[in-house]
Amino acid sequence: MDGAFVGLDGLLPVRAICALTGRSPATHYRSLAPRVHGPKPRRPAPVNKLTDEEVVQVLDRLNSEEFADKAPAQVGAILLDQGTYLCSESSMYRILRGHGQVRERRRQATHPAKKKPELVAAQPNDVWSWDITKLPSPIRGVYYDLMVIIDLFSRYVVHWHITTRESGLGSKEFIADAVMIHGTPGVIHADRGTSMTSKPVADLMIDLGIDRSHSRPRVSNDNPYSEAAFKTTKYHHTYPGRFGSRQDAIAWANGFFLYYNFEHRHSGIGLHTPASVFDGTYMAIHARRATVLQNAYTATPHRFSRTPLPPAGPSAAWINQPQQSEVAAHA
């Protein structure tokens, strides 16, 4: 193979010879410079390298009182104005870097991690969660804002409102209306949207003695109950996808949330309706279900492999489950 290359060298291009001999050009070029075993040879020092004495002189000048707080570009310019040239700007940086003197000297902003919300709701009105979602209008790019507050423990939609434009003042009135109807919750959780973190809403929370809780930035599962409720809303078979007007959206939402609160059997609360858990009547319903199953088992025991029981009722609901001891304390 090497003999063929030698015979054709100078007559044809290397790629043509490789094509004729079936040899890769990379293999050919690699064979011209065989691999050297062991450490790579040390790079020879450039002829214009500064001597050790010159490096010390440059470093002393850079660390002098006159230039200690100046960048190498400034130092080089000042020295030139003074009629002195020590070395290039890149050489100054290289010398400083070699002596560990290149770093950011300005005070840098620090952004500590946001605290992870850890909330537990053991009964209605312990924790509310609220969020805003978009409802498409007839005009492309224009949306109505659906604001929804749900109770974490019962999944009950405490309050909802549709507006054409969200704002801090509007959000304050929205929360105040919910509190007026259902009482004051212990905590209200939301993401970090402009309305949720607005001053009017913050002032209202302080005045009412409600603890504020917010999701971490860009962490969607810090507000899972509101997100899940919006998915249930928009995946419902009656959801039109687009609304002709704000009045159409209100009419649809009114019917949907009546269904959701009073008819929808929620899998997260033992297949009870949110309204029955919110008002406490679910316990009687659970007992009736158990009686019906027991009667069925007594009448036809051969149809069951074990004693049937209704789905377990709701237990403590949480966002980012805290320590088990804390969950038990709320239970």
Rank of each mutant, 00 (worst) to 15 (best):
H266N: 00
Q294E: 13
I210T: 08
N295W: 07
H214A: 05
E263W: 06
I250D: 10
G209S: 03
S245L: 10
R306C: 02
P308Y: 08
H237S: 12
H272N: 14
T300Y: 11
F304E: 02
H302Y: 02
Y282L: 06
A299D: 14
V292I: 15
F257W: 14
Q247E: 11
D248W: 05
K234A: 13
A287Y: 00
H236V: 07
R218D: 05
V292F: 15
T300K: 09
L258I: 07
A251P: 05
T291A: 14
W252A: 09
H286N: 08
Q294R: 13
I250F: 04
W252T: 08
F230L: 03
A275E: 14
S220V: 11
N295F: 01
F243C: 04
V292R: 15
A284T: 12
A251H: 08
R303D: 02
P217G: 00
Y225I: 06
S305R: 15
R242H: 12
K231S: 07
T298A: 14
A229N: 10
V277N: 01
F243T: 04
A229C: 13
G244H: 08
Y225F: 14
H266S: 01
P274Q: 09
T233N: 10
P301L: 01
A296F: 03
V219E: 04
G270W: 00
R242N: 05
W252M: 09
F230Y: 06
M283I: 13
V277E: 01
D211P: 00
Q294Y: 09
F262I: 01
G280D: 13
E227A: 04
P224H: 04
R289D: 13
T307C: 03
G255Y: 01
F243S: 02
N295H: 12
T307E: 03
T291P: 00
G280R: 11
R289S: 10
E263N: 05
A299F: 06
G268H: 04
I210S: 12
A275I: 03
E263I: 03
S226L: 00
I285D: 09
L293Q: 11
T298I: 12
F262D: 13
A287K: 05
R246L: 14
L258Y: 11
Y225A: 04
A299P: 05
R242W: 11
A296K: 11
D248T: 08
H237W: 13
T298L: 11
H236R: 12
I210K: 08
N223Q: 04
D279M: 12
R288N: 15
F304K: 02
Y282N: 07
V292E: 15
Y225E: 02
D248P: 02
R216N: 01
G209H: 01
G270Q: 01
H286I: 01
V277M: 01
D222F: 03
I269F: 13
